[in-house]
Design a protein around this nucleic acid. Structure first.
Lengths: 128, 128
DNA sequence: ATGGGGGTTCCCGTTGCTGGAGGGTCAAGC
DNA sequence: GCTTGACCCTCCAGCAACGGGAACCCCCAT
């Protein structure tokens, strides 16, 4: 399988697939002409990576997840720990965004949004 | 005022202040020895930037907000539009994070987290 | 032979800084 | 006058996770 076919199957851009090879996440074979040659297992790994990334795991986390996936002797506790840590970070980010959202919503509601220069949003940003 | 004093007052790292000058957000004076010399208005702008950034506005948005702030003839509608657009992006990000959070929470709950290799998290990431 | 649609590498740009190297400046103490 | 330490300066590299584009190779059909 060549790269564009793999891209179609996994939904990942070819650029991303090349990048994943560059950083050692996959190691496709090479054809005599220099083209990458993907095995089914490579495609499988790429799909795994795509789903891990879609859940917001960092590349380094994905690397660890992939290693655990390939290790038949893994302990599910290790996977769970990784996922829980990531979940905690997501929780934190959501909290932060919600705080911004709340503040902004208030300010936007207070703002007349007309031609006059007076604006509670700017006033808040400039306060003190 | 020199940079470390401004850093203390605004809560921004000196590096960040230099960076903001580099990209043209502020234009402090220079002392004869080459040191930056900050006016009260510079400090004020930096505080404004700090609060805008804390609300999640991008640097370019901050630049626009600052321009609106300085423009006595601005229309509050312009500020409101900017804020609403940003708010919409925050809403989108929260939605995305919540979807990740929901999926991850489910998977984490299903996972035994013991020494056995069987793991629903990995199974989900590898599915199909 | 030529054209079009693959593939390849390499390098720069993104966002918003942060860290560090290498060097000038200033105020205090001896 | 000299040193020491705490400032300040500029410039360069790097982070995450790619994306865009140049310059070039390869293969197949007409």
């Amino acid at each position: 399988m060549n790269i564009s076919e793999v891209a179609r199957e996994t939904g990942l851009p070819a650029k991303t697939i090349r990048y994943y090879e560059e950083i050692g996440l996959i190691k496709p074979l090479r054809d005599t002409n220099g083209y990458r040659l993907f095995r089914v297992s490579d495609v499988h790994k790429l799909a795994f990576l795509g789903r891990s990334r879609a859940l917001g795991f960092s590349i380094e986390d994905c690397r660890r997840l992939l290693a655990l996936y390939e290790d038949q002797c893994r302990a599910s506790a290790d996977v769970k720990a990784l996922a829980e840590e990531h979940l905690a970070q997501i929780d934190g980010k959501i909290a932060q965004l919600r705080s911004m959202q709340a503040t902004l919503r208030e300010l936007v509601e207070e703002c007349a949004g007309d031609r006059r220069p007076d604006c509670p949003i700017l006033r808040d940003l400039a306060k003190e």
